[in-house]
């Protein structure tokens, strides 16, 4: 197991760090698949900002109800014990610090935990922000799940975000296909690293200084479809 993690393996790795009893919001895109890999012994409540508390798995084919959708506008189900709320209450849950963990994608994360994930700032882009800024400032912990570098090979973990910010100093942990990195007051701390790389290799793919945690270990994930 030395290759970079697949997207499924990255989602699996995030899921291992979601504790029992947590209220969790999964952002749109890759974060949504984290729910598929939650260890079966954990009871976690998934929140969708459109007013679903207790989101369950996708419905069986033919059972879709488009009045029961996720923030990504996909049909979902509600688990026993779930509840529906209106948008102002849903964002009170987010902004009021009631959501323990939010998992978000990122264009860039800075060494200070600044997050850029809503706009690339291109002049002809139609701006759209949705709930990203509220989630980033409101959740108690923000996990970022993202490839370590862009498709062009540029680092996504940077000294300073060049894209418009979503929020300042909010990211707790970054889960990439190469490493698990904590954002700390002392800088970026590598907790886990795939076995085919050493810290110098990872540093070359990263736009901000890294240090290796004293108790760092290999980043390994099971084979997943």
């Amino acid at each position: 197991m030395s290759a970079p993690l697949t997207r499924a393996q990255m989602a699996w790795r995030v899921a291992q760090d979601i504790p029992n009893g947590a209220y969790v919001n999964l952002g749109i895109g890759m974060p949504e698949i984290v729910a598929n890999y939650l260890p079966p012994d954990r009871e976690v409540v998934f929140h969708c900002e459109n007013g679903v508390l207790g989101m369950g798995p996708m419905p069986a084919a033919g059972k879709e109800d488009y009045e029961l959708i996720s923030a990504g506008k996909r049909p979902v189900t509600l688990v026993a014990g779930g509840a529906f709320v209106h948008s102002a209450d849903s964002f009170a849950m987010i902004r009021g610090g009631h959501i323990d963990i939010c998992v978000l994608g990122a264009f860039q994360v800075s060494v200070k935990g600044d997050l850029a994930n809503w706009s690339t700032g291109e002049p002809d882009a139609v701006p759209a922000v949705g709930g990203a800024m509220d989630l980033a400032v409101g959740a108690r912990r923000v996990f970022v799940i993202s490839e370590h570098c862009t498709k062009q090979g540029a680092p996504k973990i940077v000294a300073r975000c060049s894209y418009p910010l979503t929020a300042v100093g909010v990211v707790s942990t970054i889960y990439t296909d190469l490493a698990v990195i904590d954002v700390t007051n002392g800088g970026l701390l590598v907790r886990e690293l795939i076995q085919s790389l050493d810290l110098a290799d990872l540093q070359r793919r990263t736009g901000a200084p890294l240090s290796l945690a004293r108790d760092w270990r290999a980043l390994v994930a099971p084979e997943l479809p």
Partner: peptide, 29 residues
């Protein structure tokens, strides 16, 4: 931002003159 939108509407219905939110601090919005 969606939460600010919901709260601005709620405030409009609740007779609140304005409010302070942590959302958008340090961002272009």
């Amino acid at each position: 931002p969606q939460g600010t939108l919901a709260e601005r509407i709620r405030a409009g219905g609740a007779g609140i003159g304005a409010f302070y939110t942590p959302t958008t601090v340090g961002t272009p919005l």
